[in-house]
Design a binder for these strands. Structure first.
Length: 485
RNA sequence: GGCGCAUUCGUCUAGGGGCCUAGGACGCUGCCCUCUCACGGCGGUAACACGGGUUCAAAUCCCGUAUGCGCUACCA
């Protein structure tokens, strides 16, 4: 009978959730759901300086946006001080830690000397202070830190689920601080105690924690417990192969959301960073991920985060959506991003009706404006669009005028009728499709990239369409007279 | 400097001694489709970091080198 899996995601609330953190959260969540275990959320806010409630709230919000619900928590280390103090007390009683009175200068000197001698720069505090010396320190108001007495000689081996056995010689591990001079616990103490106290039996976290692991294992064992299983996942890099950070752009999930990516493709892209199911499958539904995810299949080497690939996945996902579902997602994005806010009364309705026209053209929801933004304001020409018309004004007038002549007399202003009418005119003029149709697009949208021409015409209606055509013709005429006459 | 981890197409990866003249995906690129852009379809391009071993046989195992990254705090 195996014990139920208990995993946790333990971010420090010192900023928004990064792609790397999000992937770690995803891996943990998937492991929990796969095994029908428990996913616990814990805020590691022992750094009082940098931790903020805003950051915590943002992380929670993003986790929910990603669909990663937690079963227990969020716990905060700042609420658990009694537990840590109790454990530190137990370590003192067991003689596993000792008071260290060295000053920062003495420590620096110690490490500098070791480094100069090409030795590991580890601190081993003095443990033979005399009662007089201690009394002296206390008289000055000095308080000691408590260091873990790393057993020497010795070694600690991590049986990592991803990397195999990784062994650390205790000679390389310094007597790390577990309690600061103000009595508060350090990360290595708090994390170890929490994992133990919360019954975490598998720790899935970034490789940057690999070197800390033996310290935490030592603490847990000194407290009389067995360490959990560990799985250290490789880091995520930016395109320059450096650890992913803000300067790589769109490195936070918050930014991805703002850029118009939906949770599903983001999850899909994230999970494939370091994990694969086989040599072919590249898209998974959430259910498939839960069913197939296995942390032992996570690769050992770091992965570069490629926004372009996310974009491709996102585009495919959007196109495959049921039209109604797509419209809902689009409207949700447009509303939450405030896009519709200053667009007037009919904007939401117009946007909703335009959804089918953009569905197969977008890879990100925030590309909507590029494609359909023209609908929300009076006709104005983008430079390259105007250049297309102005390049051959006579031809442009012929095309636009020809188009106008056909559509203004249409009884029923439907896509089919519009298409027939314009196709017919195209043949009458004997132009190529691009020669004739591109001016129609520009005449009503003012841009060269937009929703489809016939659909766009139908959407705005004959009156608006005719008005835009005339406006375009007017400007073309001005240009003609002022031009090469 | 010390210790640790890693290294397959530009990128994400499959592969775990013979199935590999190394597979897939994205990118890039050629062609087709076509009422712009896009979408879609069919091809192509491109990799086992290097050097030694072990073995009948190595991308796969071992050693070394190089490179990258991580840790090296009274940060997490």
């Amino acid at each position: 009978m195996t014990t139920p899996l208990r995993v946790r995601f333990a971010p420090s609330p010192t900023g928004s959730l990064h792609v790397g953190g999000a992937r770690t959260a995803l891996f943990n969540w998937l492991a929990a759901r796969h095994a029908k275990g428990t996913f616990i959320l814990r805020m590691e806010d022992t750094d009082r300086e940098r931790s903020t409630p805003e950051s915590e709230a943002e992380i929670l919000r993003v986790l929910q946006w990603l669909g990663l619900d937690w079963d227990e928590g969020p716990f905060r280390q700042s609420d658990r001080d009694d537990l840590y103090r109790d454990c530190i007390g137990r370590l003192k009683e067991a003689g596993a830690v000792y008071a260290a009175w060295e000053t920062a200068e003495e420590l620096d000197a110690m490490r500098a000397e070791a480094r100069a001698n090409k030795q590991a720069p580890v601190v081993r505090g003095r443990r033979d202070w005399t009662a007089d010396e201690i009394a002296g320190f206390e008289a000055e108001g000095r308080t000691p830190v408590w260091r873990f007495a790393v057993p020497l000689p010795g070694e600690t081996a991590i049986e990592d689920m991803i990397r195999g056995t990784v062994t650390y010689d205790h000679a390389q591990i310094e007597d790390f601080v577990v309690a600061r001079s103000d009595g508060t616990p350090t990360y290595n103490l708090a994390a170890a105690v929490d994992d133990m106290d919360m019954g975490i039996n598998r720790v899935i976290r970034g490789e940057d924690h690999l070197s800390n692991t033996p310290k935490q294992m030592l603490v847990i064992r000194a407290l009389g417990a067995e360490p959990p299983q560990y799985a250290h996942v490789p880091l995520i890099l930016g395109t320059d192969k450096k650890r992913l950070s803000k300067r790589h752009g769109a490195a936070s999930v918050e930014e991805l959301e703002a850029d118009g990516f939906l949770p599903q493709p983001v999850r899909n892209a994230l999970v494939l960073l370091g994990w694969s199911y086989d040599d072919k499958t590249t898209t998974f539904t959430l259910e498939e991920l839960i069913e197939k995810f296995d942390v032992t299949r996570v690769s050992k080497s770091p992965a570069v985060f490629d926004l372009k690939k996310l974009e491709v996945m996102s585009g495919r996902y959007l196109r495959a959506l049921d039209p109604d579902a797509f419209a809902d997602d689009l409207m949700g994005f447009l509303e939450s991003s405030g896009y519709l806010a200053d667009k007037g009364d009919g904007a939401a309705d117009l946007a909703h009706r335009s959804a089918p026209l953009v569905q197969r053209k977008l890879s990100r929801l925030n590309e909507y404006d590029r494609l359909a933004g023209w609908m929300f304001h009076p006709l104005e020409f983008e430079d390259d669009a105007w250049a297309f018309l102005a390049g051959d004004v006579k031809h442009a007038i012929q095309s636009v005028g020809g188009g106008l002549g056909r559509i203004e007399v249409l009884d029923e202003f439907t896509v089919d009728n519009i298409k027939d009418a314009l196709s017919d005119q195209l043949h009458v003029l004997g132009m190529t499709a691009r020669e004739f149709l591109e001016p129609q697009r520009i005449a009503i949208t003012g841009t060269t990239i937009s929703t489809g021409i016939y659909e766009s015409l139908e959407l705005i209606g004959r009156d608006e369409a005719v008005a835009r055509y005339r406006s375009t013709l007017g400007r073309l005429a001005e240009s003609w007279q002022g031009g090469d006459a």
